[in-house]
Design a protein around this nucleic acid. Structure first.
Length: 213
DNA sequence: CACCAGGCAAGTA
DNA sequence: TACTTGCATGGT
């Protein structure tokens, strides 16, 4: 399995190169994006981020003061805007209660503690927590998503019923811990999923992981 | 028109 | 505990 996972990464990276995740100007912006992109295309998230930027609201203190309904209307384009506004608000409460609204302070916390804390926040599940840990705080954790699961199961590397922690373990037990590589690997799997491994995708058999490529 | 996107929590039995 | 449903805009 170790060799297979390494080869998958080499193959994907040689085909597509670095993916430059996570596009953002600050740690806090990564966190907002991680919540906004839940089950949502990144292009829709970009519009929401832009509307926040236009109002200079990529700022924890300002957002904490902003009424939830105002926030909801600003992030409308990201979809699920009422839910996501509530989730951002619940993160902000946690952020100020525990870390004074300072990403620098939060980043000093150790990985297991921080992960457990994030999972306590209503609206932050495993993928969102791990995305924040890896891409915002540069902690060495492997992010797993529905594409990861689908790709591994289609290639016979995991059971269809495999759950998030099991899938994450497959990568973390077999790969050397490396923040840059973890970030690229996950991003490359997402690209592979989008381009070739969608739920119903006729291109599945010609994906770069197939023998002929 | 149908389908899906860089999930998560609440509801149901 | 194990399944199902709600959330919602915007691109293909």
């Amino acid at each position: 399995m170790k060799r297979k996972l390494e080869n998958i990464f080499k193959r994907l990276y040689s085909v597509w190169g670095p993916q430059y995740w996570w596009p953002a100007d600050s740690i806090f912006e990564v966190i907002l994006g991680a919540i906004l992109t839940q089950n949502t295309s990144w292009s829709n998230v970009e519009k929401a981020i832009s509307s926040l930027k236009a109002k200079k609201l990529i700022n924890a203190a300002k957002l904490y003061r902003l009424p939830q309904s105002k926030l909801a209307s600003l992030i409308r384009s990201a979809g699920y805007y009422n839910i996501k506004a509530a989730r951002i608000k619940s993160f902000l409460k946690f952020f100020f209660d525990h870390y004074a609204g300072k990403t620098k302070l939060m980043g000093k916390q150790d990985l297991p503690t921080l992960r457990a804390q994030l999972l306590e926040v209503k609206g932050i599940g495993p993928e969102t927590a791990d995305s924040i840990l890896l891409y915002a705080f540069k902690k060495p954790i492997f992010v797993v998503d529905t594409y990861t699961k689908r790709i591994l199961s289609r290639h016979g590397l995991a059971e269809v019923e495999v759950d998030y922690p099991q899938l994450q373990d497959i990568f973390m037990r077999n790969l050397k811990s490396n923040v840059e590589m973890f970030g690229e690997y996950h991003a490359l799997l997402v690209k592979l999923g989008k381009d070739y491994c969608r739920k119903r995708n006729p291109k599945c058999e010609i994906c770069p992981l197939s023998a002929f490529a």
